[in-house]
Design a protein around this nucleic acid. Structure first.
Lengths: 203, 203
DNA sequence: CTGGACACCTGTACA
DNA sequence: GTGTACAGGTGTCCA
């Protein structure tokens, strides 16, 4: 795959609620306001590309009741397909040369006993459905029902995932990206990150 | 009371959600589209008469997201006053000679052990607030709040209802009523069931 | 401030 | 496999 220069916007370690029945991801306010300005809109559809080139559309909005920015619609499908769990980390990136291209990546939670060991983390680019080399126990509630396994092929409660390993461990730079200040978002054409985007305004 | 010839449009066994906190009744699509055409309107106020002659106005609308027809505004008050529970059945009728006259009736759920026993069902016509001869325990969540008792007078957790019994068991014919095909609904004056109605368009 | 109304959303069942 | 129906939810608005 061609090397595209991307820069990380932010990352978030997933909470139990982020991967639970609430079907939403809370985006820390600081990151949301710096990188994903909502403007005056109540909601917005954003498209992120995963490591396989698959597009993921998420509804992005602000919940006044909880004063938080959230990804709602579409998020639960992502959680399911990627088999994300609490502690796993999602990373949001954008292409440096074209800020309208958004990317989403993920990595397994670092081992609790070796938090600084790079090898302890498994990232998304490999086989997305199941991280390689990990021994994972799926509780009954986590098991994928037979009827909607989508593209998965392993559904045993205890599965040993494929041997494919070796992935560039994303550099976890904490440096804040030099983001364009929040721009007013209107209708279909949106100026985001200083770039005009075609975002479908809801309804 | 004078014998008015009515015909049943449809009936629906209430689900827990229909009588719960969602404050809405889902009307099965087949029945909605056959008997309650919405036309191009997003919402409509329909007035139904109960067995006591009391008028009940419900907001009737279509939820595009779930592709379902629903009664919303006013429905929860009906559920409360009639003490409806999951499994109870609501019946929607119209007068044969004047299709603009809509009626709503209800009956208690049939006993699970004697599903074909007419006496096992209690219907609406008697004392509307509480079916006669029944000993009913209201859980805290079912209790009517002091603030919106409206016309009710009994609010004890455990109440023994009046002695009035004996009601004609409504014939549960499954025959589909020969309904007028959906007619375009516009503004205040509406053609419904082949009859012009004055329905207040919302907003 | 609270509850009702409202317009969304989703998992499941099923044809 | 895909789409439809709907039971069961959500946050937001507003009286």
């Amino acid at each position: 795959m061609v090397q595209e220069e991307r820069e990380q916007m932010f990352e978030k370690p997933l909470t139990p609620s982020d991967v639970g029945k609430l079907n939403r991801l809370v985006i820390p306010k600081q990151h949301a306001e710096k990188h994903l300005p909502l403007g005056s809109d109540s909601g917005l559809l954003l498209s992120f590309e995963d490591e396989a080139g698959k597009a993921w559309r998420f509804r992005y909005s602000y919940w006044t009741s909880s004063h938080s920015y959230v990804l709602t619609k579409g998020w639960s499908r992502f959680v399911k397909e990627k088999r994300l769990h609490a502690g796993d980390v999602v990373l949001f990136e954008r292409r440096r040369s074209a800020a309208d291209r958004l990317y989403i990546r993920w990595k397994r939670r670092r081992g609790l006993l070796a938090p600084n060991t790079p090898a302890a983390a498994v990232t998304s680019p490999s086989p997305p459905p199941c991280p390689p080399g990990t021994l994972k126990y799926l509780s009954t509630s986590e098991r994928v029902s037979e009827r909607e396994r989508e593209r998965e092929s392993v559904f045993l409660p205890m599965v040993r995932c494929g041997a494919g390993v070796g992935d560039e461990e994303a550099e976890m730079t904490r440096k804040t990206t030099k983001a364009t200040p929040a721009t007013l978002i209107k209708a279909k054409r949106v100026r985001l990150f200083g770039v005009n985007l075609d975002c479908a305004p809801e309804q």
